[in-house]
Simulated assay, not measured.
Amino acid sequence: MPLFWRIFLLNAVVLVAAAALLLGPITVSTPILLAEAAILTGGLAAMLVANALLLRLALAPLRRLTRAMTTTDLLRPGRRPAVSGHGEIAGLITTFNTMLDRLEDERATSSARALSAQEAERRRIAQELHDEVGQTLTAVLLELKRVADHAPSDVRAELRQVQETTRGSLDEIRRIARRLRPGVLDELGLASALRSLTTEFAGPGLTVGHRLDAELPALRHETELVLYRVAQEGLTNTARHADAHHAELTLRTTANGVELLLRDDGRGLGDAPEGAGIRGMRERAVLIGADLALGAGPGGGTELRLTVPVPDRSGRP
């Protein structure tokens, strides 16, 4: 039973018992007058209503705190219930907010470690694909060419087909390695990396446009990497699940910082729950203090918006 009803019913029992005593063995006059009974009944009703209103007002901060507890998500930080009420209730809300601050800091620290380890593992796998598998397939291609040049004409065509298959596999491995380790991000910068990313995802059934500001404020390497990975995951979702024909990637400077915007004309999110990809994007956004919004676009489809606060020259965001 909720705390409100427990307190209210306890008070109601006391008040009803007092009224029963006044109407029973303890009376103002004998026999009891109808006017006295009406006054006592009206007084009891007034006391019960006043008691209910006072309890509602006193326990309202607890109800707000309960709603905050059920809706809190560490991947959407910064939301706090307002400290209200008096005494123990205000102290309870303050303690809850302090606990959220600690949990969000611990979550950000653990996410930073996990994402750093993930990027290191991606670099290692990409390096091994490039150095080991890539070089092996390159050697196979050269050997196939040498054998095909000396093979009889009836076998040569089959060897050429094997060459093309091997060359396609080598291109696919190089593409996977580029996705695992965006070397163009380190070498040419964020704008060039995003431009290359849109070209990579464009295909026969999907056109991907881009609008990238030429002048961007100085960003940390971690911030650029998060912007790139969020754009990569968003385009991956568009290509695989959105059933879209056109997508537009925008990177621009706003009054709030740097904004990455991805829109498509697909079927939208609907009622589908957030998967691991979207939660991964939220974790990356939390890592750099960015705000990630995902919903329906103005003309339908899906809109992904990542806003990264950029500190000014004084160091303030």
Rank of each mutant, 00 (worst) to 15 (best):
P217N: 03
G300S: 03
V308W: 07
T30M: 15
E106D: 09
G268D: 04
P298A: 00
S153N: 12
P2V: 02
T30K: 12
V133L: 15
A37R: 14
V28E: 13
V16H: 09
R179E: 14
T199Q: 15
A276H: 08
V147F: 07
V147A: 09
V258C: 01
T302V: 13
R113A: 14
V226K: 00
Q161K: 10
D149L: 12
Q232D: 15
V147I: 11
L59F: 02
G203A: 11
R6L: 13
L55Q: 07
T238Q: 10
I26T: 10
A214E: 11
R179K: 03
T95D: 13
L23Y: 08
L216A: 02
A120Y: 05
A151H: 05
V184P: 00
E104D: 11
Q135S: 12
D243K: 13
E104Q: 09
L206W: 03
R282V: 00
T166L: 06
D149K: 13
R195Y: 06
G205A: 14
G183C: 01
S29P: 01
L292Y: 01
S116Y: 06
V286A: 04
P309S: 07
T136Y: 11
R124V: 08
G189Y: 02
A19G: 09
P77D: 03
R113W: 10
G297A: 14
A290F: 03
G299E: 13
E200F: 11
T72I: 03
A126K: 00
N97F: 03
T307G: 04
G78S: 04
